[in-house]
């Protein structure tokens, strides 16, 4: 028997407000795949990602995760997912270290010193997030990719506010993740240099 797809999306309908964002969208995702969702501003890329996560309701359709129907209850998916959206969920009054302790409580920050150095966060560990630059805050959120072990990464415009060096670092990390069998769903408006994700056109 063929093993199940990582994700199987069938006949998905999403409506937000008055607009139908997608109708009868079907696709499947295999382990090790990187998928880039394409579409203009307002096409509904973020909504699609959130619909997969269950924070935006879907009107019709079904979602299978490793062959199991999770349309009604995403908790199994959530246990293996890392989501970083437009708003990244960092607490502004807490320091970088405290935020990482919130999201990645079972790792010791000291063990990840090299990658935090590379991300340029090491000198700012004890600075509150509201005193960081946009890019530094985004780097802090993205450092969770290195500090946690989840198979599915859902990244909504992860490259925004990043400089070239950080973009390359992130692309490398995404590549590594997919080589290790992980799955990445992402949206971005910038051209990617080192990875060639499968592209999913998003249009009604």
């Amino acid at each position: 028997m063929q093993s199940a797809d990582f994700l199987t999306i069938t006949d998905l309908w999403i409506e937000r407000g008055e607009r139908v964002l997608c109708k009868e969208l079907s696709f499947s995702v295999q382990s090790g795949e990187v998928i880039r969702i394409l579409g203009e501003n307002g096409a509904g890329k973020s909504s699609l990602l959130k619909a997969l996560l269950g924070t935006v309701l879907i009107d019709e359709g079904s979602i299978l995760y490793l062959g199991e129907d999770i349309t009604a209850d995403r908790s199994n998916l959530h246990k293996d997912t890392l989501y970083i959206g437009h708003s990244v969920g960092l607490k502004k009054a807490l320091t970088v270290r405290e935020n990482l302790a919130l999201y990645c409580p079972d790792v010791s920050i000291e063990g990840y010193q090299p990658i935090l150095e590379e991300l340029g966060l090491a000198p700012f560990l004890d600075m509150p997030v509201n005193k960081l630059s946009q890019g530094q805050a985004r780097r802090t959120a993205l450092s969770r990719l290195w500090l946690t072990q989840k198979s599915l990464w859902i990244l909504d415009e992860p490259f925004s506010a990043l400089d070239d060096q950080a973009c390359l670092l992130l692309e490398k990390k995404i590549e590594q993740h997919s080589l290790a069998g992980g799955v990445v769903l992402l949206t971005t408006h910038i051209p990617l240099s080192s990875i060639q994700p499968r592209e999913l056109e998003f249009a009604v």
Binding site: K50, L53, G54, T55, R74, S75, H78, K79, T81, Y83, G85, H86, S87, V88, G89, L90, K91, K92, Y103
Partner: peptide, 16 residues
């Protein structure tokens, strides 16, 4: 309010 604005609510929902 702050959790809503900074995206924390979404993180709670997908935290498992």
């Amino acid at each position: 309010r702050e959790d809503y604005e900074d995206g924390s609510l979404e993180q709670w929902l997908v935290s498992g």
